[in-house]
Simulated scan of single mutants.
Amino acid sequence: MHVFPITTYPWRALAAASALTIGLPLLIAAAALIGSAALPDWLFILALATALAWLLAVNFALVVLALYVATRNEITIRGGTMHLKGGEFHERVPLEAVVDARVVDVADRPDLARARRRNGIALPGFRVGWFETADGRKLFVLRAAGARLLHVTTDIRFDVLLGVDEPEALGQRLLSNRCEDRD
């Protein structure tokens, strides 16, 4: 068994999620506090502040949970199969089905960069799940920010696009189909 790590801590996704779930309620609270001169009832202001504090706490917990799930990614080769795990998306690719594995630069492959999301997560700097290329080919994507990706072409119903730390090593391993991978 061999595990290929994927470094995924999507800073841009964290910033976007924080801005929406934390920044927006803070702006609403600031506007309410600015208009508090027109509201003489101190109890109303205290209730508003308490409600917003709860809202912020819940939103922060949800963002942390979502990012924890989104960053639990790995690729494992064992039993003649490549096991892909990205957040809540899981897929298996038999090593016999791998036709080609090439390291590509996403800037040179607009068909891969502009793949449409079918069932997945697309955040700034992070993509995982099922996508579809312009020619209709299904694509299982597991990548964080990074331009160098491993494009695995298969003879089954889909291809794979991976943003691993060592794309050359994984590509060689997939094409070699070693005995220890078929335990």
Rank of each mutant, 00 (worst) to 15 (best):
G129W: 11
A115C: 01
R72S: 08
E91F: 07
V104T: 06
A70M: 15
L67V: 09
A134H: 13
F140C: 00
G136I: 08
V98L: 09
T71I: 06
R78W: 01
A145E: 12
D105S: 12
F126D: 02
G80T: 11
E88C: 04
K138E: 15
G80K: 08
R116P: 04
R78M: 03
R118I: 15
T154A: 00
L67Q: 13
R148A: 03
W130S: 02
V104P: 04
G120W: 11
D135Y: 03
T133D: 02
R78K: 12
E91T: 06
G80H: 09
P110C: 04
A70F: 13
V99T: 10
V69H: 08
D159Y: 07
V103R: 08
D135M: 03
N119W: 15
M82D: 00
E96H: 13
A66K: 10
R118M: 12
L84M: 03
G136T: 07
N73T: 15
F126Y: 15
N73K: 09
A122D: 11
N73L: 08
A122T: 12
L149C: 10
L149P: 08
A113T: 06
N119M: 14
R143I: 04
E91Q: 15
H90L: 07
M82F: 02
H151D: 11
D159R: 10
L150V: 01
R127L: 05
R78I: 01
I156Y: 00
W130E: 12
R102N: 14
A107T: 14
A134I: 10
L123M: 14
T81F: 01
A147S: 13
R137L: 04
F158M: 05
A122R: 08
D108N: 13
N119E: 10
L142S: 09
I75Q: 05
L142T: 02
G79V: 10
F140Y: 07
W130M: 05
K85F: 03
T81N: 04
E96I: 06
A113K: 13
G87H: 05
A145N: 12
A97N: 08
I77K: 08
R78Y: 00
V99N: 03
V104Q: 10
T76N: 12
P94L: 06
L149M: 12
T133Q: 15
N119Y: 14
F131W: 13
L84T: 00
F126H: 15
F140M: 00
D135F: 03
V98P: 07
F89K: 08
R143W: 05
H90Y: 09
D155S: 13
V152K: 12
R148F: 07
V99E: 14
A107P: 06
L84I: 01
W130C: 01
R102E: 15
R127G: 04
T133C: 02
H83K: 05
V128I: 14
V106F: 02
G136V: 06
N119F: 14
V152Q: 13
L123D: 04
G136N: 04
V160Q: 00
L149W: 07
G120D: 10
I75L: 14
R157I: 06
A144M: 07
I77W: 07
G87E: 06
A70N: 13
D105F: 05
D159F: 04
R118V: 15
R137T: 14
L142V: 11
R109I: 01
D100M: 05
N119H: 13
P110Y: 09
V104D: 11
A107N: 14
F131D: 10
V103F: 04
G80P: 11
